[in-house]
């Protein structure tokens, strides 16, 4: 997980570690389960070292359990959050790899591209099924429901790409 996410979660108010975790859970729903608690503290530790957050209260009291500590953004942290919010970046789907896999498999005659596509398709469909089930269990208009919808839409897009691949490779095989 990106440090900036944790940093931004602190922007609202100084919080303890478990509060951050609850906030993440609410936004992520069932997907939040994949984030283990330790991850958050590791990240907070790094941010502290970089001078982006400070621990409030007694800095000397090192024996305190870390989840009772209240973290707060430093001005540098604040600036970093603002910078992060204005950044334009988008996760890039790695379609090239799959595409090249098909090309290579066909060129070398090592595997049938169609069956590779098929395998991938089944995998995506099973994923879609899982996401769909999670989505159906969500409350209407919840934050995490929106995220699940996003996944569903991406999977659908991927499935359509696979369909296009299948069509193309079936045609190619027919013309050989």
């Amino acid at each position: 997980m990106q440090q900036e996410v944790v940093l931004a979660m602190l922007a609202k108010e100084p919080s303890q570690g478990y509060q951050l975790r609850a906030r993440l859970d609410e936004a992520l729903g069932p997907l939040g389960e994949s984030i283990n608690a330790g991850q958050i503290y590791v990240t907070l530790g790094r941010l502290e070292k970089a001078g982006l957050v400070v621990r409030e209260g007694a800095p000397t009291d090192r024996s305190d359990r870390s989840d009772r500590k209240v973290y707060e953004l430093t001005p540098a942290g604040q600036a970093r959050v603002t910078e992060w919010l204005s950044e334009v970046n988008w996760p890039k789907p790695d379609l090239a790899e799959f595409h090249l896999k098909l090309v290579a498999a066909a060129a070398a005659g090592l595997a049938d591209p169609i069956s590779i596509i098929d395998l991938q398709r089944r995998e995506l469909l099973r994923l879609l099924r899982d996401v769909q089930r999670e989505a159906m269990n969500e409350q209407e208009a919840s934050d995490s429901g929106l995220l699940l919808e996003g996944i569903v839409l991406r999977l659908q897009a991927d499935l359509r790409f696979l369909e296009a691949c299948e069509r193309a490779w079936t045609d190619r095989r027919r013309h050989l």
Binding site: M1, L28, P30, L31, E33, S34, I35, Q39, P91, D118, R122, L125, R126, L127, R129, D130, V131, E134, L147, G150, I151, R154, L155
Partner: peptide
């Protein structure tokens, strides 16, 4: 042309899909 049972799938993978994978 194809028939497939749709059971299973891994929850861990879901996190990957949204960039939450470790």
């Amino acid at each position: 042309v194809d028939e497939m049972p749709l059971v299973g799938g891994t929850r861990g993978r879901l996190a990957d899909l949204v960039g939450l994978g470790g």
